[in-house]
């Protein structure tokens, strides 16, 4: 027993040494390049930031409206994504049915589509002349575009895949031993899901929700195409940034800083919850 532990320990040390010794310079160089490519634009924004006018920009009514709208719509989007996304991930990971490959492709599609195409598709479906939108408008005189509902729908369309794919991946890779043990002990299926499966994949759910939320917060192309832009109603922070760029590039940089700050803050607050636990369990 003791010698076995020692062997395991030794081999793990050797593996560590091997890892650090064999990371070739070329790989390190490329890694630094990759990191710089991501860091330089952020540094660029920082150098252009009009720090002196920041309080003024923050006090601006339309800025506050845009920040508030972005925050609550992306949070609502994430809530809806959790409610429909986790079951979807369950079905994709575990159910056997015809057309599962098609269903998976549908989930992945918004990831590879330009968001503006998502906006056009949403218009074609839910716009006043659209597949679903026309009967809604003609019978119930309901118009979805240009409302906050359209903002949330645009965000959900582009961000739901992030949650579904993350959770589905976790469900596929986790073993089912604990769940089987639960079944042997006579737990109902509902209890197994609530008490065993969901806690087991909690880090993946949190990670997926964060990705989903961040993607929704940054959503622009589908939103401007499908929901339009009206301050206080559908003008989110990214749209505001884009419009302000034409009027006052300095203010646009200030608004970009705010968006970056919000994202950094959220990632930092959730770091223990997310990266920490995912790594600890791997």
């Amino acid at each position: 027993m003791g010698s076995e532990t020692a062997t395991v320990a030794r081999s793990s040390i050797e593996r560590q040494r091997l890892t650090s010794r064999t990371t070739p310079l070329a790989i390190k160089g490329a890694a630094v390049l990759g990191l710089l490519f991501l860091a330089i634009p952020i540094i660029g924004v920082l150098t252009k930031a009009p720090w002196s006018t920041m309080p003024e920009v923050l006090a601006n009514e339309s800025t506050r409206q845009a920040i508030w709208l972005s925050l609550w719509t992306s949070t609502l989007t994430t809530a809806v994504a959790l409610v429909i996304g986790i079951p979807l991930a369950f079905v994709l990971a575990r159910a056997q049915f015809r057309g599962r490959a098609l269903a998976r492709s549908l989930v992945i599609l918004p990831l590879v589509l330009p968001p503006v195409v998502g906006g056009v598709a949403l218009l074609a479906a839910f716009g006043r002349g659209g597949l679903v939108g026309r009967p809604l408008f003609e019978i119930g005189s309901v118009t979805i575009p240009f409302t906050w509902v359209a903002v949330v729908m645009a965000q959900l369309f582009v961000s739901l895949p992030f949650l579904v794919i993350t959770v589905e991946g976790a469900l596929r890779t986790r073993g089912r031993d604990l769940e089987e043990a639960g079944a042997v002990l006579g737990l109902s299926e509902a209890r197994i899901i609530m008490r065993i499966t969901l806690p087991m994949i909690r880090p993946a759910i949190v990670a997926g929700a964060v990705l989903c939320w961040a993607r929704a917060l940054g959503e622009f192309g589908a939103t401007i195409t499908f929901a339009g832009s009206l301050p206080g109603v559908t003008q989110t922070l990214p749209t505001d940034i884009y419009y302000t760029l034409a009027r006052d590039p300095g203010e646009s940089v200030a608004l970009s800083m705010i968006l970056i700050a919000i994202c950094v803050l959220v990632l930092w607050v959730l770091r223990g919850n997310w990266a920490g636990q995912v790594i600890a369990r791997e």
Partner: peptide, 17 residues
């Protein structure tokens, strides 16, 4: 809605939005 340019406005009209 406030659109980014006149083409976007025209599109919204043409597509009956």
């Amino acid at each position: 809605t406030y659109e980014p340019d006149v083409s976007a406005v025209l599109t919204k009209v043409r597509t009956d939005q």
